[in-house]
């Protein structure tokens, strides 16, 4: 027992020493962003993630600094987290799914959804993955997303077309919208925030949320609470961000809405 006390003390000291440089400094907000991935972010400061970052920095009275690193190289998001947050080149990712792996997340600050997108003039009757209309349409989907899974379990994948904006540096989520408007596909299934700002310029496209479902037995989730991400165990930065989210929920959602991010029923997440 007596022996344990100094050992504990030393461990605590070591822990503090190890922890001190890891925690974000209060006078800086160091974010990592993709330099070329609209509508999320680019080096010119455009994109809703940049606007959210700027708002958070202003609110905290912190200096905003960027590390530009693509999320879309080999290794994907996991590699990105390793090369940025975990390598301590930055402290904050502005837009990650709540409770996602590899990072610690703040409380959610918005909920959005995967959506069906098609030409309004077609008047399709599509309200869910089980809508019969989908059986006869060419369906565009983003690879490795819940949309692909939903199409697979209904055998709709046989007449579907993959898109891969999230894996190819330089690729754009707008490519799926172009394919809808050129008639290459009849309907696209994509994450609304990935196309929201492009849709503002394309009022001829209809946008319908894909409801979560269990109609096939397996659970299918298409709406997601989104949060900010910090390094695992960096509770200091998380708590700073949480305080901003709690106090400024309205402003945050206003910024998102202005940039075309459609918010689907924040429910209890934002109201409490």
């Amino acid at each position: 027992m007596q022996k344990n006390v100094p050992r504990l003390f030393i461990l605590t000291l070591l822990g503090l020493l190890a922890f001190a440089p890891v925690a974000a400094r209060a006078d800086a907000l160091r974010v990592c962003e993709d330099p070329n991935y609209l509508p999320f972010s680019n080096r010119a400061g455009q994109g809703f993630e940049n606007e959210i970052a700027a708002f958070i920095a202003r609110t905290l009275g912190a200096r905003l600094t960027y590390t530009w690193e693509t999320e879309r190289g080999p290794g994907g998001f996991e590699q990105f987290v390793h090369d940025t947050l975990d390598s301590k080149r930055c402290d904050v990712l502005v837009d990650v799914p709540y409770a996602s792996e590899n990072v610690m997340t703040t409380r959610p600050y918005y909920i959005s959804s995967y959506v069906f997108v098609y030409e309004k003039s077609k008047h399709y009757d599509i309200t869910s993955m089980d809508s019969p209309e989908l059986q006869r349409l060419r369906i565009g989907f983003e690879s490795d997303t819940p949309a692909e899974n939903g199409l697979k379990i209904r055998a709709l994948i046989l007449h579907a077309v993959p898109f891969d904006a999230s894996d190819e540096p330089g690729g754009s989520p707008a490519e799926m919208l172009d394919a809808i408007q050129s008639g290459r596909i009849g309907v696209g299934v994509t994450w609304e925030p990935a196309v929201g700002s492009f849709l503002q310029q394309r009022p001829q496209l209809a946008v319908v949320p894909v409801p979560n479902s269990r109609s096939q037995g397996s659970p299918e989730q298409y709406s997601f609470p989104m949060a900010m991400g910090v390094r695992l165990k960096d509770t200091v930065t998380r708590d700073r961000l949480n305080s901003v989210i709690a106090a400024h929920a309205v402003e945050l959602t206003r910024i998102l809405a202005r940039d075309g991010v459609k918010l689907y029923k924040p429910g209890d997440v934002a109201t409490r």
Partner: peptide, 18 residues
Amino acid sequence: FAVKYKSGFPYVGAIVKM
């Protein structure tokens, strides 16, 4: 499946076969 993020696209799920 755990919640994953594919550069802009969130993902989670489970496959159940009965």
